[in-house]
């Protein structure tokens, strides 16, 4: 698939979602894995739109690209907002708390990282690169 380049705005999230769902289908992922990949990319892209660009008042693009090999479908989401490494966000500590004492927000990054088989972050040439991987068999290959 050709990379998708869209403005880092809320209106672009549906196009990013459609692109990722299509990539998942072409990669032969099962329906549940397509959903999980879509969820992970949507959470990170929403975060880029709201916090990366929105809150700092900067404008920029989001680029989404995919690569496919025998074992894995990889989706890369890049932006030019300030550096932000999702892996450094602490996991929520209140997941088993009753609703009245739960923190509002902060679940998106956790959900994203839980939903894909592999996740990596790089900051290269002033770009955040979020790299999502799904095994095509639907489970991790044998070592």
């Amino acid at each position: 698939m050709r990379p998708l380049m869209v403005p880092g705005k809320r209106d672009s999230l549906v196009r990013i979602g459609d692109y990722v769902v299509e990539a998942g289908r072409l990669g032969g992922l099962c329906r549940r894995d397509v959903y999980r990949l879509h969820l992970a990319v949507d959470e990170i892209a929403t975060n880029i739109v709201i916090h990366g660009y929105g809150r700092t008042g900067t404008e920029g693009m989001i680029e989404v690209s995919t690569t496919l090999d025998d074992r894995m479908l990889t989706v890369v989401v890049e932006d030019t907002a300030r550096p932000f490494n999702p892996c450094l966000v602490p996991e929520p500590y209140d997941l088993d708390f009753p609703l009245e004492s739960r923190k509002i927000g902060g679940l998106g990054i956790y959900l994203a990282l839980q939903s894909v088989d592999t996740f990596a972050y790089e900051y290269v040439n002033r770009r955040n690169r979020n790299i999502f991987g799904m095994y095509r068999s639907g489970r991790e290959p044998d070592p």
């Binding site: 959903y35 969820l39 609703l99 509002i104 927000g105 679940l107 998106g108 959900l111």
Partner: peptide, 19 residues
């Protein structure tokens, strides 16, 4: 058919408001 953490946030806010 699809709900992200933004939907979870909605459920939490409405549930608190009703409480």
């Amino acid at each position: 058919s699809y709900m992200s953490s933004m939907g979870l946030r909605l459920l939490l806010l409405i549930s608190r408001k009703l409480a």
